[in-house]
Amino acid sequence: MEVFGIRKNELPMNEDIRDKEVRLIDTDGGMLGIMPSKEAQKLAYTKNLDLVKIAPNAVPPVCKIMDYGKCLFEKAKKEKEAKKNQKIVALKEIRVSAKIEEHDFDFKVKNAYKFLEDGNKVKVSIRFRGREMQHTITGKEVLAKFAEAVNEVATVGKQPKLEGRSMIMILDPKKQ
C-alpha cells in the first residue's frame, strides 16, 4: 500500500518529507540542530546521501543523513541473521491410558526422550472414557511415573491437570 509515494513500512525520505522544520542528525550521529527541511535536503544532496525521517512522531520530526539503500540492506541482513539464530520449539504430544501396560509405557517414555533431547516440549495426555472418570487418581499416578521416568532430560512445566475428560501434563526439556 502506498500513501503519497511512501510504502507502508518504509521511512519517508528526501522529497517525501513535507515538514517545515526538522531536527537533523549527521552521518556520524552528531546533532546538527533544527533547520528547515529544504536546507536539510540540500545538505544531504551535497554529500550524495539521502535525508531520511527516522522519528516522524517527534516534534519537530527527527531526520538523519544516510545512504538509504545501505540502511535497508543492513536491516534486512540483521533480520535474516536473527531469523537464522531462532530456535523453534515444537510441542509434541504423547497419549497414554490410565491402564497402560509396562512395555507400552517404556515405548512411550523412549519416544518422549527423543523429543526432549531434540529440544521440544512434550505434552503427555490421558483420555478418560466412560467410568474411567471415577479413577482419575490412577491417571495422575501414571503421569507422575512418566515424569519420574524422564526426569534426567525433562522438568515438569505444567503439573498434571484434569481438563474435561483429559488429564494433561507438559514436560520442558532441561537446558544443557
Rank of each mutant, 00 (worst) to 15 (best):
V3E: 08
G5Q: 04
I6K: 12
I6D: 07
I17D: 08
R18T: 11
E21P: 00
R23Y: 03
G30F: 05
L32T: 01
I34P: 01
P36D: 12
P36R: 06
P36W: 00
S37N: 03
Q41L: 15
K42Q: 15
T46F: 00
D50P: 08
V52R: 02
V52T: 11
V52D: 03
V52L: 09
N57C: 00
C63E: 01
M66S: 09
K70W: 03
L72T: 04
F73P: 05
K75T: 11
K75C: 03
A76R: 06
A76K: 03
K78L: 12
K87M: 06
I88V: 13
L91T: 09
V96S: 05
S97A: 10
E101W: 04
E101F: 07
D104R: 09
D106F: 07
K108S: 12
K110T: 11
K114E: 11
F115V: 04
L116C: 10
E117F: 05
E117Q: 14
G119K: 09
K121Q: 15
V124P: 07
V124W: 04
R127G: 10
F128I: 04
R129P: 03
G139C: 12
E141G: 09
L143P: 08
L143A: 06
K145N: 15
F146G: 10
E148S: 13
A149T: 02
N151P: 02
E152Y: 10
V153C: 04
V153I: 10
A154N: 11
V156S: 03
Q159K: 14
Q159V: 12
P160L: 03
K161R: 13
E163I: 10
D172F: 10
P173D: 05
K174W: 05
